[in-house]
Nucleic acid binder design. Sequence first.
DNA 1: TTGTATGCGTTATCAA
DNA 2: TTGATAACGCATACAA
Lengths: 334, 334
Amino acid sequence: MNATPPTRPPTSLDVARLAGVSQATVSYVLNDRPGARVSDETRARVREAADRLGYVPHAGARTLRTGRSGLVLISMEDIPYGPLAVGTLEELDRELSRRGYTLVQYGARRLKGVPAARAWAELRPVAVLAGAGKLNRQAVEVLRSAGVKAVVALGSRPSPVVPSVVLDHEGIGVMAAEHLIDRGCRSLAAVVPAEDGLREMGEHRLAGVQRVARAREIPLTRVDLPFHEDGAAALAELWRRVDGVFAYNDDYAMLLMAVLGDAGLAVPGDVRIVGCDDLPLAALLRPRLTTIRLDVSATPSALVQRLEEIIAESPAVPSRIDPWTATLIVRESS
Amino acid sequence: MNATPPTRPPTSLDVARLAGVSQATVSYVLNDRPGARVSDETRARVREAADRLGYVPHAGARTLRTGRSGLVLISMEDIPYGPLAVGTLEELDRELSRRGYTLVQYGARRLKGVPAARAWAELRPVAVLAGAGKLNRQAVEVLRSAGVKAVVALGSRPSPVVPSVVLDHEGIGVMAAEHLIDRGCRSLAAVVPAEDGLREMGEHRLAGVQRVARAREIPLTRVDLPFHEDGAAALAELWRRVDGVFAYNDDYAMLLMAVLGDAGLAVPGDVRIVGCDDLPLAALLRPRLTTIRLDVSATPSALVQRLEEIIAESPAVPSRIDPWTATLIVRESS
DNA sequence: TTGTATGCGTTATCAA
DNA sequence: TTGATAACGCATACAA
């Protein structure tokens, strides 16, 4: 059993010694600074020495010296789950690292009474993306004061205090309602999930449905529903009174289709259902499900571009609010 | 429009000045070091000054000074998606932050030819969790040399070079096969997904099915399948030749149920199907789906405990390999 | 009970 | 072309 080699990680000074140059020269070569004029031969020696030692620069030291960490923090909890979010996140990561930033997902729980924003601030990130709910005035102030250039909210509504990436849940409700009414539905229901993480988005989608229903004078029933068959089945009477349901998302839509089938109702004959998310699974249903998909394909690059603008201008107080909106696509497959 | 206040973030020295004490005292108070004896009155003054300034310590500087970052890195790409992974990750985060560590999800793509491990090493994390595939000998060497105490692989098989969290995919295949055979199936098929991210796990699950089939002398057909109806439907002949299918997971199981239904085959009358993952959605199917669930509820705390042991012992070369295995639960709901 | 001094690894300024 | 040298913010051994 070998004794533990308590070897320190190699530093740029170690590299310098091995290459027989000064430590400053190492820094010049490895960052190939434009201004520095170092002979090709020296460069090669430095590079080889770094390789041999397995030299890896110390991010903390660099951040301390330069004042820039290059970190972009995004909070884990505030990203809705599913294939859409995963793909978007990967694209965002790609886009950011192309420009020299590093995307890092970070927990957003408060620990021992310390608000999450404070933990984020310790890393001195250049930008923070987090749920609108967590970015109250105080949190933003902590971040700003720690030198965070860009604070961006993620949510269903624009944040009053920082620029926001808005997922247009109301728009989803609007499209769903119009779709159903255009196809002859005259009595609507809209599901609001009774799950903690989903209720808020559910209410925003509901708001969109409400707007259309009111404008077109169609009665609308709000249905608060946990994701269980029993609860949905218990509402059998309700389902007989309506001819169109916006099910919140595809999962709920599938739940309803199962329950309505059990209750002897035909879909879409007796009741039309619209889901949301365009889940691959939903395409397997018989009959096929009509669904609404958020098109966020353009969001990552647009977001990164705006981030760079904000970082460059570095406005202490944002002069204006700039919500972005993802666009909707209806995918009708019945 | 206010001009940008180019205010530096406040430092502990700023706090010291405002409180009328030395910078060292600030450090003592804010970390309440056991050894330091500071009067309650001074403590209060320091705390108040820190609050007033919105002082947030600089993680990079602290890391540089102490040699410990407290960061635990986990690669984003190597976490399979879905509700199970999300819950596990949250639990892991909770568990780690209780012990003073900070979990951070980090991209695993290589950027401009720089291997991911090098980017991880720059942050000087205390531990790195990543897909077994990314932790080859060289990557581990880079991490070790950068002072990473614990490197842990995530995968379907124990890594030969570092301790591993093993998700027992072979065990899943074994259980599925035994389940089917015990219920009278005499001709099996097992799906291997033809998607890049899934194929490997598919092969491991298949291996388990194969083992059982061979032992019990049951014929087995391997079915490589992309997630499309058409491909599955084209295999109509195959489905008629078997009476039991392990569908890889619940998504594929639902795909098969749709296709088999279209082909006029009864489930489970003509063909039995076993899925995996225990998706809430799968419970809605008629007939209900038999599924296998990995029980990883104990994994986070066990993992963190082992991490601390490894960090404490700090073995330069791991003296032995310690795979963990998640346990299986069959949830039969037909 | 508190202050002084030092060093962590890096980048960047200036002089040689 | 390259090499000293200082400074970033913090924690800590030691002196007062």
